[in-house]
Design a protein around this nucleic acid. Structure first.
Lengths: 123, 123
DNA sequence: CCGTATCCCCGCAGATACTG
DNA sequence: CAGTATCTGCGGGGATACGG
């Protein structure tokens, strides 16, 4: 009812969506590959290595729709399609890198916690 | 083969895991609820509102295993179980908040991109 | 009150084959 | 080369019932 409350839940929805996009299997991998330089579809596919054509297409579409990736079709034959990050995409990389850095710095603590937990609960 | 390369892919695995944990449906919601103060299971359940008992349990177990959440069983009758963030959990909240803030600041750009995309591709 | 076990449904993701 | 279409399996996650 209260505007503040509505705004809060709205924000939560958006942030939740964002976390999902960031957390899904391929999106951030694609984005980091594109971070280095624009690439065509097949370069990206080979670079990532394990991704199916379908999932790469889907990921790129989602990222394009959200404005993180720009798609350019070169009218050559055979067709050539280039992908690159937009400004928004590059900016997104900043907070994501923050999370990545934090993870790198704290993997040990996490793994230690896991070992301890497993030690107490698995046997 | 090269140590650097191995480290890189290892890091990627870890970071990818972290992004998944952060991006999964309930984890961060639980963590932000706990951020405010320790809570017992049922409070958490009611607070979040839409989560099933199963998923709340699962989320809490995962978070506990990774060392983000501490679980305390009070030997009363009926039993009472309290959850609270660990130091690690609270620290995690920092980079996550960074991403959340970035999202809040850029929702309009994302939604604008979506509308434009849908306008061009849906009809 | 808290947790586990069981069942079941739905959507994601891989494989494959086909079009522009 | 890039993308779509179709099929299928597998696992996440909800509902329910029961145990400690």
């Amino acid at each position: 009812m209260k505007p503040a409350h509505i705004a809060e839940t709205e924000d939560c929805r958006q942030i939740s969506q964002m976390l999902s996009r960031v957390g899904d299997k391929w999106s951030m991998l694609v984005v980091t590959y594109l971070g280095e330089e624009g690439m065509r579809f097949s370069e990206l596919r080979r670079g990532i290595g394990n991704i199916s054509q379908k999932m790469l297409t889907t990921s790129l579409r989602n990222l394009e729709r959200d404005g993180f990736v720009k798609r350019t079709v070169l009218p050559t034959s055979p067709p050539r399609v280039d992908y690159e990050l937009t400004d928004l995409g590059r900016e997104l990389l900043v907070p994501v890198a923050g999370l990545a850095d934090w993870t790198r710095e704290n993997v040990h603590r996490i793994e230690t916690a896991r070992k301890e937990y497993d030690l107490l609960h698995k046997p």
